[in-house]
Simulated scan of single mutants.
Amino acid sequence: MSEVVNAIVAVAVIFFIFRWATSGSSSSSDERRSAAAALGFRPKPVTQEMVNHVHAVFPNIPPDNIRFDLLRTGSIELTSNKILERGFLEAPPPAYYTIYPRAEASAQQLPDGSNTTSVSSPSSSAKQPSLIERYNLHDRVDGVNFTPDVIEVGGKAKWEDTTEKREASLRERKAQMILAARQRMLAQTE
């Protein structure tokens, strides 16, 4: 009989120790409960990548609206379908901003390691380089005046023997297409 009592006491002690050890991590569950109470639903896990993905497809939708809907659905597809069906997403309630600060105010980490303010704010968007700058065609733009009939843009290329020659041929065709497009644009503006 005493062995049974010792076993019951040992199980009870182990149970209370286990409960005490796991109660320290309840702060995250308390945060979830308070978020659920404030928002009126249990928020699903949402990453910044999910918000950026939807925002890249629908740049006119504010990131806070996207995050709020993703917290509800937990799915990029459902949020995207809702935008396609309605054309907009509801604005989050004021309680949302107490839990999740505004996207414009929070600093975000870019993939290159630099910090910037919100991706959606127009003042923070850097000027995109032109195709001339991206493909280093400055020397070809300045000295030569192309005419569209001289350049055969996008024509059939001859199959080269080596990969280096094929890459060089592709780069040259790409440069010719960019320069011809630039020339057409300049002709339209004149």
Rank of each mutant, 00 (worst) to 15 (best):
S124W: 04
H53W: 01
P122H: 03
I132M: 10
Y97Q: 04
I132E: 13
A56Y: 04
R32W: 10
E31K: 12
Q109F: 04
N115S: 12
L89Q: 06
G87H: 03
G40E: 14
E77P: 00
P129S: 12
F146R: 02
G74N: 10
T147C: 02
I83G: 01
T147K: 09
A37G: 03
P63I: 00
V153D: 02
I76Y: 03
I132F: 10
P59T: 02
S75N: 14
H138R: 13
T116A: 14
D142K: 09
N52I: 03
G74H: 12
S120Y: 11
Y97C: 03
F88K: 05
P94S: 11
Q48R: 08
L39V: 09
A107G: 03
I151Y: 01
S106A: 14
E133P: 08
L78A: 15
S80H: 01
Q128Y: 09
D69N: 15
L84S: 12
L84E: 11
G154N: 13
Y100K: 02
T73Y: 14
L110F: 01
H138Q: 14
N145H: 06
P45F: 06
P129L: 15
S124F: 08
A105W: 07
R140Y: 10
T116E: 10
K156E: 14
L110A: 08
N52Y: 01
S125K: 14
G143I: 05
E104F: 03
E133M: 12
Y135Q: 09
V150K: 07
N60T: 06
P111N: 07
G143P: 00
A107L: 15
S75D: 14
L89H: 04
V57C: 00
L39H: 05
D142E: 12
A35C: 10
E152K: 09
F41M: 13
S124C: 02
Q128P: 02
N136I: 09
S125R: 14
A36D: 06
H138P: 00
H138S: 15
E133K: 14
P101A: 04
E133D: 15
V141S: 07
I99A: 09
A95W: 00
H138A: 15
F41Q: 12
Q48K: 07
V54P: 00
L39G: 07
A38T: 08
T98Q: 04
V54Q: 01
V144C: 02
D112M: 02
N145Y: 00
G40Q: 13
V153A: 04
F88R: 05
N81D: 15
R42M: 13
Q48L: 08
S125W: 00
N81M: 09
A126S: 10
V51K: 01
P45E: 15
Y135C: 09
Y97V: 06
E85P: 00
L39A: 04
G113L: 07
R67W: 08
V54Y: 03
T98C: 00
H53V: 04
Y100G: 01
P92E: 08
A37H: 07
I99W: 07
S34C: 05
A126I: 10
N52P: 00
Q48E: 13
M50I: 09
G154P: 03
I151Q: 02
S130C: 11
N81K: 14
R72I: 09
Y100V: 11
R140W: 07
V119Q: 06
G40Y: 11
L89T: 05
L131D: 13
V46I: 13
T117Q: 03
P43Y: 08
